[in-house]
Structures are given as structure tokens and as C-alpha cells.
Design a binder for these strands. Structure first.
Length: 512
RNA sequence: GGCGCCAUACCCAAGUGGUCAAGGGAGAGGUUUGCAAAACCUCCAUUCCCCGGUUCGAAUCCGGGUGGCGCCUCCA
């Protein structure tokens, strides 16, 4: 890589040059879902960010082993399953299937490995055994606790001081308030496994240490996840792994910001098909999106109405570490921006043609040169942004500059026929955007069809009805019956269907 | 009570020591059009929450204040 790749490291609170342990190869472990319910758009923000991150690293010739786990046995799953009167493991299985369905729908690549807690029990027990052996854990009444005071470094990642914590959970047999469970003694009705300490199940944090260890070894290059996991989850992982192995657990910590619901705004709205009136929602609704706050919007619901790439653009249009506010305008805005990119690419394609004669080239002059300049500079501009702590929002800014330059050139009548020399570099730039950020991966036609399929049902029309009306309107226009033509157009416009009269006929779009 | 992050125009959002403060949306005017829509052009922050300080020079660094958010309980 020509320029260093720079990444913010939560552990040091600074942006650092990224150097993997083994040159050219990156081991990445990302905390995935606890599968007790459907994936909401806060979860999928993390999924999209890391998917895109891996895509980019690979594009830049790093070899990446991407591991994203499933926590398929835990308190919450057991609790929810009990409420629903079902088997916890069956519930987890169902939500894993749903998650896979949602990620596929979102257009994400599968991670290289997706370990599950229930398939990592031997490794978890081995790790716990090691910790007891080394004096960092103790068994008490069928459970095993991590001995926090035995690890002086505890708190380094999150900046917490053990004696300042508001510890609540008393726990049976715990020696220190900050100690946390590695192994939980079996309770009736809960899934359990045999162990040297009696039947039970893993605690919350040990699983990730074990899964990272079994898939990537004692030291991983980058550990990712939501910023809300820093404490206690990641802090505890560090202690478990470093006390067991005596090696640095993760060299870089990469945390994404939360999806938030701003104060006094409507959540979802047209996005969810929920037509509750706007206005102030209960205080509990604002802040971080989460199931327990009752403000979660499930990803599958949104994907029924918006193309996956609109979600992707929504996520990538803000730096991954910033909080991302979600409201009713968010997706329409992102979809509009995405459509702008597609339309610019279409305009570039339409300019294909012969090498222009000199007089035409001269008349295209400055505008054509501008496109050429931006298109050729695009790769280095994109790399500069993404190499700088994965600044996807900055990278997108460059794409929009190019889009405007293309549209400007294509407005030029002569360019419409003869944009020749600028087309290839412009299309190459958009192709690079597809490869790295996963946007504009469809043909323009596919994209328009997807929009129509997802948006039209809410507008009270079928494609056939719209086409029928447009035929009537074409007839009226041919007869210069402008009032009839305008009446049809107004009727469609009322239902958010925009009609555009082109030289070769009328097109229509769903207004975003 | 403890730890940490953030504060850029009407809205969203890049930029984090040095030419004019990206980009998108909204708004105003114009080109185009049968009229529109879309697209394009022009305008839209002499200024980056406030107050001090460092510097030849700060939105960018330091100190204080105010406001918002995350974590300390399950959390992407």
C-alpha cells in the first residue's frame, strides 16, 4: 500500500497507522448478534460498516480473515424463550436464520467464519480451566467467576477504575463486586453442558474470547463492534484472554457509533408504514435505538420499502464512529442521493459514441475536461478518504462531485451524442465505488424496478395502470390536448409519481 | 457519583494548524420545456456552541463554561 492505512484505536483514543501482525494479512473479529429477536437497523449499521470495511481492505490487497460470531445462548434468549414458551436453542436457531436472510437481503457478503457459542463449549471450558490454573478465576457453588483484582490492567481499554464502578449484581459466591461469571451454574429449564465445575452454561464474555482464540489465535489484529460494548464486554474479553494466554488480545479496537433517535422526532413514520401522527414521543423513545427502548425498527420491515443500497448509503454517508440519527426523512433522503448517482451513471453511459470531431471536442471543452479530471482523480481521492480512518462520507462527497460534472456535460446537447473520451474513466470511477462501498451494484434498470416494486404498492397504483395512463397522455399530447395531458400528469403527481417528458417519450419515476 | 465521545449553514454531513470551510437536501432566481419534471447555472456559514490561551497563523491545539450523546444493567 502506498499510503499507510490509518485507523482510530479505541484503546489509545488516537488514529494510528495500521500494521497487522502478519504483513499483508488481517485477522478481524467482530461481535455479532445475540439472537433473541430480529435484527434492527442499529444492528445492521454495524454489519454494513464491517462488511464494507472488509470489502475495502480486500480491494486494497490485504488478505482478511473475517470472523463474526453468534451468541446463541444467553440470559436474554432464555428469558424471551420462556415468555414465549419455546426452547431457547430453537429460538436462537430461528433468529440466526432470520439474520442470515436479512443480511443477504442487505447485500452483505458472508464472513469467513461465523462461530456460535453452542459450538464452542470445549474451547470455552479449556479457557476457563486455564484461568483457574493461573489464579485468575475461582469456582463457587457450581459457577466460575473471573477474579478481577487478580488483573491489575483491568479497565485499561475503557478507562474504568474498578472501585468507581456501580456494581450491582451480587452473584452467588462472588468475592469482589466487579467479578463476572465465566460459567453459570445450571438452573432448571435452562440449556446446560457438563463441565468440571458442574453442569451449566458459559457467561456472556468468555464466549467471544474463546471464539476469537479458536478462529484467529491468541492475538487478533482488529476487534470490532458497537461502542456500547466497550464496557464491560470488551474490557472483560481483554482480561480473560490476556490472563489466559499472556499475549495482547487485540491490537486495534474499532467501534462503531450508535444509531440514535433524535429528540422530538417521529421514528420510522413512512419508513415503517406506521402512520401515527408526529409530535413528541415518550422520553424513552429517544436516544440509542434498542429493543428495550421500544424504538427499534427492524431491518426486514425497512427493506420491504427501500432498496438495500439506500440503507447502505444511509449508513456510509456518516463517519462510522459518529452517532447516526435516524428519523422519517433519513431513508427518503438517502434514496434520493442514491438515485442521483445512478442517474449520473446513466447519463455517462448515454454519452457513449464516436470520438468527437475537433470542433465538437472544442465546444465540449471545459466541461469535458472537468469530468475527465475528476474521474481520473477519483481512485486516489477515494483511497485517501478511506485510508484515513475509513472515511466513507468523505469518499462519497467525491462521487457526488463527479456526478454533477457528468450531468453538466451531458446537458450539453452535442455531448449527448458524443461524450466519447470521458465515458470510460467516468464509468470506471463508478465501478470502483461499487467494488469498494457496495453502491451502484445494479443496472439502472434493475434499480428503477426495485424502487417501483418497493415504493409503488404504497402509492395506490400498479405499473400497468401508470403505463396505461401514460399511453392516454401520449395520445393527448400528440393531439396537443394539453389540458387532458396535464390532468393525467397531475393525477399521477398527486400520488407521488413523477412524469418526465423526454425526446423519445415519457418516463416515470416514483417521487422519493 | 465515575469513565468516555461529540458540538460545522434551515436540515443531514466532510474537513481537525496555513490558498475560496467538501458533498447532499430544503429555499430564492435563471437556462431548458407546450407547461412541467429531471438536469444544469447563480445565490444561500468572512465563519465553524461560548469565553480565555498557545501560535506569524486555529473550526482545527490547550484550559474553562454550556449543551447533546454513549457506557458503568442487556445491548451493534
Amino acid at each position: 500500500m502506498a499510503t499507510p492505512f490509518r485507523l482510530y484505536n479505541t484503546r489509545t483514543r488516537t488514529v494510528e497507522d495500521f500494521e497487522p501482525l502478519v504483513p499483508g494479512h488481517v485477522g478481524l473479529y467482530v461481535c455479532g448478534m445475540t439472537v433473541y429477536d430480529d435484527c434492527h437497523i442499529g444492528h445492521s449499521r454495524a454489519m454494513v460498516i464491517f462488511d464494507t470495511f472488509v470489502r475495502y481492505l480486500r480491494h486494497r490487497s490485504w488478505s482478511v480473515t473475517f470472523v463474526r460470531n453468534f451468541t446463541d445462548v444467553d440470559d436474554k434468549i432464555i428469558e424471551r424463550a420462556a415468555e414465549a414458551g419455546e426452547d431457547p436453542l430453537a429460538r436462537a436457531e430461528r433468529y440466526i436464520a432470520n439474520f442470515h436472510r436479512d443480511m443477504r437481503e442487505l447485500g452483505l457478503d458472508d464472513p469467513d467464519l461465523e462461530p456460535r457459542v453452542t459450538a464452542t463449549i470445549p474451547e470455552i471450558q479449556a479457557l476457563i480451566g486455564k484461568l483457574i490454573e493461573r489464579g485468575h478465576a475461582y469456582a463457587a457453588e457450581g459457577s466460575v467467576w473471573f477474579d478481577v483484582p487478580s488483573h491489575p490492567e483491568y479497565g485499561a481499554l475503557s478507562g474504568q477504575q474498578v472501585d468507581k464502578l456501580r456494581s450491582k449484581d451480587p452473584g452467588v459466591g462472588k468475592r469482589h463486586a466487579a467479578d463476572f461469571a465465566l460459567w453459570k451454574a445450571h438452573k432448571p429449564g435452562e440449556p446446560s453442558w457438563e463441565s468440571p465445575w458442574g453442569p451449566g452454561r458459559p457467561g456472556w464474555h468468555i464466549e467471544c474470547s474463546a471464539m476469537a482464540w479458536s478462529t484467529l489465535g491468541e492475538t487478533i489484529d482488529i476487534h470490532g463492534g458497537g461502542i456500547d460494548l466497550v464496557f464491560p464486554h470488551h474490557e472483560n474479553e481483554v482480561s480473560q484472554s490476556e490472563c489466559a494466554h499472556g499475549q495482547t488480545y487485540a491490537r486495534y479496537w474499532m467501534h462503531n457509533g450508535m444509531l440514535t433517535v433524535p429528540t422530538g422526532r417521529k421514528v420510522g413514520g413512512r419508513a415503517t408504514g406506521d402512520d401515527t401522527p408526529g409530535g413528541d414521543e415518550p422520553a424513552a423513545m429517544k436516544g440509542k435505538m434498542g429493543k428495550s427502548k421500544g424504538n427499534a425498527v427492524n431491518i426486514d420491515v425497512l427493506l420491504r420499502e427501500y432498496p438495500a443500497e439506500a440503507l447502505r448509503l444511509f449508513y456510509l454517508d456518516t463517519h462510522y464512529r459518529s452517532p447516526l440519527p435516524f428519523d422519517a426523512d433519513a431513508l427518503p433522503t438517502s434514496l434520493g442521493k442514491l438515485a442521483r448517482l445512478y442517474e449520473a451513471r446513466e447519463a455517462a453511459e448515454a454519452m457513449g459514441g464516436e470520438e468527437p470531431p475537433d470542433d465538437v471536442a472544442r465546444s465540449l471543452g471545459a466541461d469535458a475536461m472537468r469530468v475527465l479530471e475528476l474521474a481520473r482523480a477519483f481512485p486516489s481521492a477515494l483511497y485517501a478518504s478511506l485510508d484515513d480512518d475509513f472515511n466513507t462520507a468523505g469518499a462519497l462527497g467525491h462521487a457526488f462531485e463527479l456526478a454533477r460534472a457528468i450531468n453538466r456535460l451531458s446537458n450539453h446537447k452535442k455531448a449527448n451524442q458524443r461524450g466519447g473520451p470521458v465515458v470510460a474513466p467516468a464509468l470506471a470511477a463508478f465501478s470502483l465505488l461499487s467494488k469498494t462501498l457496495g453502491l451502484m451494484t445494479l443496472s439502472t434498470e434493475e434499480f428503477q424496478l426495485e424502487i417501483k416494486a418497493k415504493r409503488l404498492p404504497r402509492l395506490g397504483f400498479t405499473s400497468e395502470e401508470v403505463e396505461g395512463l401514460l399511453q392516454q397522455r401520449a395520445q393527448a399530447r400528440a393531439n396537443k390536448d394539453w389540458s387532458r395531458a396535464d390532468q393525467i400528469r397531475d393525477q399521477l403527481e398527486e400520488h407521488s409519481i413523477a412524469v418526465m417528458d423526454r425526446e423519445h417519450g415519457s418516463e416515470w419515476r416514483v417521487r422519493l
